[in-house]
Design a binder for these strands. Structure first.
Lengths: 340, 340
DNA sequence: TTGAAAGCGCTAACAT
DNA sequence: ATGTTAGCGCTTTCAA
């Protein structure tokens, strides 16, 4: 910056003021400085600036993985949004317990970011307390935490929509397929189960634990076993609400391979509106991770800029039912049973 | 840091040395300092340190999107790897031309990172020249650039493997399904096409442009039309090599919906070993984005640490054929033709 | 509107 | 092994 000052024949402070776009610089001097800066290919060091301003120009995000549709969509929106406000995006990927422990021990984000976005993590109270005295706004995304700024989708309402859709189609035996805890998303999982139960209770259908199965997307045998369990019940379900599109797709494949037609013999509805839902023509409940990224980013910027902003605000995002080809009205199968 | 020094009853430099893990600190003092630091919840400011050292402790990555299996896997590996070397991961998401232009104009990474990893971008010569005088190692990932450090998978060999597998199964009419340019991945696309052609030429099968179709994963009608084109040829293919698993899955679905059994009537092989390949039991050629992230990260760390390291080194990663259930030996369909 | 000067929090060279 | 001290490149009073 000294070089620029010399070349433009002005003082250091004038260069600084010019480059930050302050108004108290005469147009003539400004032109000269900008010219010099361009010629020298100069860009100010954020490190040095932040040392004196106390702001880093960085927003940090804490994520369990980047390898998921949800995180990918959310961050792909968040990145450009931050850049529009001259902020950069720092990512902390915490895939396992060891990393997690070390992160919370050392809190590397401290002083190295202006805000932290915690994505889809089920934190312990101690961990949250630790983040509380990080000295920066901490926003919880895809989960809701009392008394702290949170952005999340209304999982309960979404699950209710899915279940009601099946009820409206005439189904009465409706199963719920749960994903065996994917790290970090257990919060949504609980909420979706709750919405499912609510919808059934509303119409007076008693809850039946036999209709609830848990499986993991990556465990083929487990999926087959789970589906098998449902099919071997005395009174099997005619519809399944699966809490995640990826698992729903796997279930549809499994059913079809077993010659159980979907949706003729079994309706299946997912949750997410993941890309795979479109490929499978899967009925589902859409949420928008991209909106989540945007809203969370905007909230972060606001909390950074305005220390008086409400730090307990919750933003709840809506869901939408997307009926596609894997749900259909219940067809009474009485004939078959009679014919046995 | 002064607070820590005072609390531990030592000098500033001793605190600094301790916290950076230097050996020239007596165990007893070290313990005291660490204790004090913990009590005060202290973490050093990277900004201040980098002002002195000239190193930022940051590795920046330039990506077209985060919302893809490839990027997600690569960065999920890269993140923890960097953190193990006390480096942080800064992400620049450049989804469109406007962002791209502005990135190359302002080069925000300048002075704010120690190395830049350019993922899956087809850069112009001017853009690369611009990066050359960024004053930090720039590593090209998932593409190969003459004279600059690059990490990429051997797409040509992979495509050859896929095609040869089909040839070995007896297929002679083998189509190639290309993805209509997904931003940033045109490099791999060209290479895979090239490998396909090589394998055919090796065994003396003439190239037939009618067997090459382009489609986009998100354009259902386009996929149906592309498949339709192949099925309406005078001499239709008995196998298709699809350059991407996601598209391959869509093609398998389309074929099955049209009652063309896969693999009985048509073999389909993809490329990537994307998750979806497992769900569809799709034969494919595996590449490992995760390895790519790891290797690229290691290379970055090396180039940062060792100014004398070879800056033109290329790392080529292998591919593996994964035969699954969508490829099968050619069944002569002569009978059918006779019976018409 | 511009300039001079005092730090921001750290590291590294030097001294002990 | 530990302490002292001079900056790193900026921003921000304060003065002119």
């Amino acid at each position: 910056m000294a070089d620029v000052a010399e070349r433009a024949g002005v003082s250091l402070s004038t260069v600084s003021r010019t480059l930050r776009g302050m108004t108290s610089v005469s147009p003539e001097v400004r032109a000269r400085v900008e010219q010099a800066a361009r010629e020298l290919n100069f860009a100010a060091s954020r490190q040095a600036a932040s040392l004196v301003t106390g702001r880093t120009g960085v927003v940090a995000v804490l994520v369990p993985t980047l390898n998921s549709w949800f995180m990918g969509s959310a961050l792909s929106t968040l990145g450009p949004l931050l850049r529009a406000s001259a902020m950069e995006l720092m990512v902390y990927v915490i895939p396992n317990l060891a990393e997690r422990t070390s992160f919370f021990e050392r809190l590397p984000a401290r002083r190295n970011a202006d805000a932290l976005l915690v994505f889809a993590f089920d934190l312990t109270d101690e961990e949250m307390a630790r983040l509380d005295d990080l000295g920066m706004p901490v926003i919880y995304v895809s989960q809701h935490v009392e008394g702290r700024p949170s952005v999340y989708v209304d999982d309960v309402a979404g699950a209710r929509k899915a279940t009601r859709h099946l009820l409206n189609l005439g189904h009465r035996r409706i199963a719920f397929a749960q994903t065996a805890t994917i790290s970090g998303f257990s919060f949504s999982s609980r909420e979706r189960m709750y919405g499912y139960r609510q919808a059934l209770s509303e119409v007076g259908i008693p809850l039946d634990d036999e209709l609830v199965v848990a499986m993991s997307v990556h465990d083929k045998r487990g999926i087959v076993a789970g589906v098998g369990h449902l099919l071997s019940l005395r009174e099997p379900p005619t519809a399944v609400f699966v809490e995640q599109d990826e698992l729903a797709s796997a279930i549809v494949s499994t059913l079809r391979r077993a010659r159980i037609d979907v949706p003729e013999r079994m309706s299946v509805i997912g949750f997410d509106d993941h890309q795979v839902a479109e490929w499978f023509d899967l009925s589902t409940v859409a949420q928008s991770p991209s909106d989540m990224g945007r809203v969370a980013g905007e909230l972060a910027l606001k909390l950074i800029d305005d220390p008086d902003a409400d730090r307990t605000r919750h933003v709840v995002l809506p869901t939408h039912l997307i009926p596609r080809a894997t749900t259909a009205p219940l067809v009474p199968q009485v004939e078959r049973e009679d014919s046995i």
